[in-house]
Nucleic acid binder design. Structure first.
Lengths: 79, 79
DNA sequence: TACCATTTGTCCGTATGTATG
DNA sequence: CCATACATACGGACAAATGGT
């Protein structure tokens, strides 16, 4: 799994956003399927939940995912 | 029918409580008559049952309705 | 009596939303 | 950025109560 460098010049949340973006582009995270929950991202990448949220927020702003309260965040199908 | 905005700053259960309060005030929901069941509220407003329950709880706290287990929740007559 | 459908009561697990150090 | 806490919301499961068959 792609690693995150907490030191490097790029903010962690941006690194995670890029990783998730690539996982979506590659089909690893498929349309209409949920991406890992914030808790899972936290565990899998060794980051704080707030940082995971921020990364997901980036993808929301890019319209790559849609979030449903109480359910999760899903990969948006291509129109 | 009045809509609920799952986003917006006001919690869904409060929005539903306000809607039901207005339906009672307008007479749409009449004294000694049942309000929609939790299952009906769930369907009609597209929310979870727990959220519907919470809205009804608000009205109970305001003494606007009375709930009978196994029967339903009824609009309280004005004293 | 024994079911049965409906409704409310309760509990659990999971996830997101927000706020504070 | 991290850590914590609490609120809000969804979904499922089962129990208790009610009224009818």
């Amino acid at each position: 799994m792609e690693e995150i460098d907490p030191l490097g010049p790029t903010p962690v949340y941006r690194q995670l956003a890029r990783i998730l973006r690539e996982r979506i582009a590659s089909g690893d995270l498929a349309p209409n399927r949920p991406i890992p929950s914030e808790a899972q991202l936290r565990q899998q990448y060794g980051i704080a939940r707030g940082t995971a949220r921020r990364a997901v927020q980036v993808l929301r702003d890019e319209r790559l995912v849609v979030t449903v309260t109480g359910r999760g965040t899903y990969v948006r199908p291509r129109p």
